Amino acid sequence: MSLYDDAVLVLKEYGDQEELRQVYLEHLETHPDGLWKACADGHITASALVLDPVRGRVLLTLHRKLRMWLQMGGHCEPGDATLAAAALREGAEESGIPGLTLLPGGPVRLDRHHTPCAWHLDVQYAALAPAGAVEAISDESLDLRWFAYDEVADVADESVVRLVAATRARV
């Protein structure tokens, strides 16, 4: 199965945010290249909120280009077999934490937002950090920091706050 086929399947099976889900599916239907950064009309991205439920906290990155506290995530790459694999790869690369595992049940949320390169149609997953995980800042980050659930609203925008709430509801 191709990454494109996986993305369509994941979105068809996603049971929430019906209107936005349809936007994503229509985008892929009209843009066979809609998973790739080169698609100027926008592209599917994958992200992972790194979670430490034992300590009640999430790891956010201060994004180098956007200068915002966000979950880990970014563009799909040719080596990604699935959207889940892309989210897990992005989570590990940007957090520096090996051994992340995605929460079961597929994506937690969808979020469409404009970035300097194009519209991002983000498929958002949540990843559990292993016990004793130590983060390491990547080239894409200015900083990495753990935030208690109730601190996220003080540092991040509403999309991240909604993602944290949806993730907590699933855990």
Rank of each mutant, 00 (worst) to 15 (best):
W36F: 15
V10W: 08
L9R: 15
A129C: 04
G73H: 10
V54M: 06
H27R: 02
L103V: 06
I44A: 13
R170P: 00
T30C: 09
V155T: 05
K12Y: 02
A165C: 08
R109Y: 07
L25F: 09
L163T: 01
Y24R: 02
L121C: 04
A156Q: 05
D139W: 06
R89E: 04
V123Q: 04
H31Q: 06
A131F: 05
A85S: 15
M68F: 05
V58A: 11
D157N: 14
F147C: 07
K12F: 01
A48N: 07
L144I: 02
A166P: 02
L9D: 08
M1E: 02
P107F: 14
D111L: 06
L110C: 08
V171G: 11
D139P: 01
H75L: 10
C39E: 15
L121V: 09
V58N: 10
A153V: 09
T45L: 10
D6E: 04
C76A: 08
R89W: 02
S47M: 05
W119Y: 12
A7D: 03
V155M: 04
V23S: 14
A85E: 15
A85C: 09
R64Y: 01
S2V: 00
A156S: 06
K37M: 11
L49K: 07
L128P: 00
L11C: 04
R112W: 01
Y24M: 14
V160A: 00
